[in-house]
Design a protein around this nucleic acid. Structure first.
Length: 724
DNA sequence: GCCTTATGTCATGGC
DNA sequence: CCGCCATGACATAAG
């Protein structure tokens, strides 16, 4: 039920986002602040009348500080806040992704066929231009899915993509703005690059087919030179623009964070229609120098949607990472999976099926998206082919990354901690977010654990706790009043205190002040259970608090007397001539001497030994509990350290996945380029419907499509080492 | 009335 | 063996 509520809540937020995208402004805060009961309870949960936690937190409810650390509403609270923040952020930082792709579409009029999804595979590779348009479309598709994250963060982080053409004027706009598109593409590509050198190294390590082409950047764009020398036949040196304008500028933390947020948004919404498709405009007919910066960018949600494949699983396309795979051009076996792809993209086989089933029940946006919107979402989705990299970044892992990265970025604040706790299914007493004390040393992740975990202990250090452990307060006074019989030595009080934390640091903490426990270890208690029960009425917590306040200087004598322990009472009743403090704390030799000095009967001796035993055991029990608590604290810290480390590792993993994704794009473009320039003996290009490139330890092999996997070990025609 | 927490006490085992 | 300590288990009070 909770899950459903959360799910619906997120869906509601998504719906709001979608409404904002189509121009309908919806202020959720209005609904929430006006406290319309249904919506408010849907989003914020049941009203306070139904939540126990509000009982403890009637104050300091601002920013969630008032929510009890153990409240089940905590996670919901911060989830709601996070989503609302996302909604609020719609009007400044983040350009809606649906607007993004509208003007980015550019299609070369000479390569109309490139985007035709329903055409057969034989269309491809009639000439180099077609192939390169294949590259374009495919790269666009890949960018559409795999590059979704880049799309979003580039939008959120930059304002360079401000020009948004309406859909009805898109055809005109796309032709008029090709130059602008180039610039925008350049900026886009510059943002998407993580670390080019890392990618290159990875590329080399992954595909040892030859030397890596140099991206010799001209300005902010890069050019890819075709291997004119090594191409066996009528290869042409075609200046190719890189599918992505790579730069060596690493992504800064902010950009990575935005990337992560983009992933989260994409996953949450499962709106996979944000396709910024950067492709190469390497048409031989346009290969003049001025076209090096031109870009063909696919789009979604456009009237030309029918030209683009619509049968791609949006769900998979939403994965912006390693699920993006090598084009089927290089992996014909994958066709057996039956993933529907844009026909020109999948050059190897026409055996395809629809896997829209993957776009299934989990897609909440399908509930909210109107059919036109839904139809547009299918337009530029990307072919998704499972590959060895797919396992690197599964959807669940993306969730984990998002959550943990969120926690990382914000220093494990409480909402992240709650997310982490949900993720880790923490059900132990090691509540990591049990306290968000504003008086904690800091909000950093290191202090969170200790401050939180010590809440149970520190809560005991309210005013009364200070009384119990402080030798200079009522306890000392009580000892003085107790005289030779009651009380412990200051050493014992000190020992008791060192078992716990300094209560002074918890003064002024409202949450902690409201908790009052009796930690008066050294404070003499009632001498008997009957009197203790009597104490509960006269010297109960509230009563004692009042009395303490009233008689700070003059502690109530009767109360002090009644707070003597049973052993004190017994000792007094048995006329033990020395204090229990001496009985307990004296060394055994001195203790024996003390006993020898006085002539005591058997009952007295037995009581004295019992008092000593019990007193020592009481201290031992306190020490034992202190150690236990310290152990728990250390374990908490260890857990937090491990969580932090895990989050860091996941972050790194995500970066690597992004690098791999870019590398794959690069490999794809290079492979397509290579394939496009391959010519048979008669100078004709190889048909992608008949051949494909296969990577092997010996280099890149041109393999016929009908060759099985077993046969693929034997190169059929040619083996071409890619050298650039 | 039940649960949780804090505390004291006892029994037990190790040193 | 004795004393001390540590600790689990239990009881009780209090919130």
């Amino acid at each position: 039920m909770l899950y459903l509520k959360k799910y619906f809540t997120e869906g509601l937020i998504q719906f709001t986002i979608l409404l904002s995208l189509i121009g309908v402004r919806l202020d959720l805060d209005t609904y929430l602040n006006n406290q319309l009961p249904p919506l408010r309870e849907i989003i914020l949960g049941p009203s306070s009348a139904y939540t126990q936690t509000q009982f403890h937190n009637l104050r300091n409810t601002l920013d969630g500080y008032g929510i009890h650390p153990k409240s089940v509403d905590l996670d919901h609270f911060f989830t709601t806040r996070r989503l609302l923040n996302q909604v609020r952020s719609l009007d400044h930082l983040r350009v809606p992704s649906t607007e993004l792709s509208a003007w980015l579409v550019h299609r070369d009029p000479e390569t109309v066929v490139s985007a035709t999804s329903q055409s057969g595979p034989s269309i491809a590779l009639d000439n180099g231009g077609s192939l390169e348009d294949v590259n374009n479309s495919e790269a666009s598709a890949m960018r559409g899915a795999g590059g979704a994250s880049e799309t979003t963060y580039s939008l959120s982080g930059e304002d360079s993509l401000g020009a948004v053409a309406p859909e009805d004027s898109q055809e005109q706009g796309e032709r008029e703005s090709s130059d602008d598109l180039s610039k925008e593409l350049t900026s886009l590509g510059a943002q998407t690059s993580l670390s080019l050198q890392e990618c290159l190294r990875l590329l080399e390590a992954t595909f040892p087919f030859g030397e890596e082409p140099e991206f010799q950047a001209t300005g902010s764009t890069s050019q890819l030179r075709a291997p004119t020398e090594e191409t066996p036949s009528t290869s042409q040196g075609i200046p190719l623009q890189a599918p992505l304008s790579q730069s060596d500028t690493p992504l800064d933390l902010e950009q990575q964070w935005q990337d992560i947020m983009s992933i989260m948004e994409l996953q949450d919404m499962e709106v996979n229609n944000t396709a910024v498709n950067v492709s190469m405009n390497n048409d031989p007919n346009n290969n003049n120098a001025s076209t090096t910066d031109s870009a063909t960018i696919g789009s979604f949600g456009l009237p030309r949607s029918t030209l683009i494949n619509q049968d791609v699983s949006l769900h998979q396309a939403s994965l912006p990472s390693c699920s993006q795979d090598f084009p089927p051009l290089f992996n014909p076996e994958l066709d057996s999976i039956g993933v529907q792809r844009p026909t020109l993209v999948r050059l190897s086989s026409s055996n395809s099926s629809n896997i829209n089933s993957t776009f299934g029940a989990t897609n909440l946006t399908g509930l909210f998206l109107s059919p036109p919107l839904n139809s547009t979402t299918n337009l530029t989705t990307t072919p998704v082919v499972p590959d060895p990299f797919s396992s690197l970044l599964e959807e669940s892992m993306l969730d984990e990354i998002s959550l943990l990265d969120l926690a990382m970025e914000e220093g494990f604040s409480q909402d992240q901690a709650s997310q982490l706790e949900d993720e880790l299914d923490s059900d132990s007493g090691l509540s990591l977010d049990s306290s968000h004390s504003p008086a904690s040393p800091s909000n950093s992740e290191t202090s969170c654990s200790s401050a939180a975990s010590s809440s149970s202990t520190s809560a005991t250090f309210s005013e009364e706790g200070a009384v119990g452990y402080s030798t200079d307060s009522e306890a000392a006074t009580a000892e003085a009043e107790e005289g030779a019989i009651g009380g412990y030595q200051p050493e014992y009080s000190k020992l008791c205190r060192m078992g716990y934390q300094d209560p002074s640091q918890f003064h002024g903490i409202p949450q902690l002040e409201s908790v009052n426990h009796n930690h008066t270890y050294n404070l003499p208690l009632a001498s008997s259970y009957s009197e203790r029960s009597q104490l509960s009425t006269s010297c109960s917590k509230k009563g004692r608090d009042k009395q303490i306040q009233q008689t700070k200087l003059q502690p109530p004598q009767d109360c002090v007397d009644r707070q003597s322990s049973r052993d004190d009472r017994r000792a007094r009743a048995m006329d033990i001539p020395f204090s229990n403090d001496k009985i307990i704390n004296l060394p055994v030799e001195e203790f024996n001497e003390l006993l020898a000095k006085h002539h005591l009967n058997e009952d007295q001796l037995s009581l004295i030994r019992d008092i000593r035993r019990r007193g020592k055991n009481k201290m031992a029990a306190q020490n034992c509990r202190k150690r236990k608590l310290d152990t728990i604290l250390k374990l908490e810290e260890g857990v937090q350290d491990l969580q932090r480390e895990k989050a860091q590792l996941l972050k790194e993993k995500m970066e690597y996945c992004k690098c791999i994704r870019q590398t794959k794009q690069k490999v794809q473009s290079l492979s397509q380029e290579l394939f496009a320039q391959l010519r048979d003996e008669e100078g004709r290009p190889y048909s992608a419907s008949e051949y494909f490139l296969q990577y092997g330890p010996d280099g890149v092999l041109l393999m016929p499509l009908n060759m099985t996997t077993e046969q693929s070990n034997k190169p059929d025609k040619k083996q071409k080492d890619k050298k650039k």
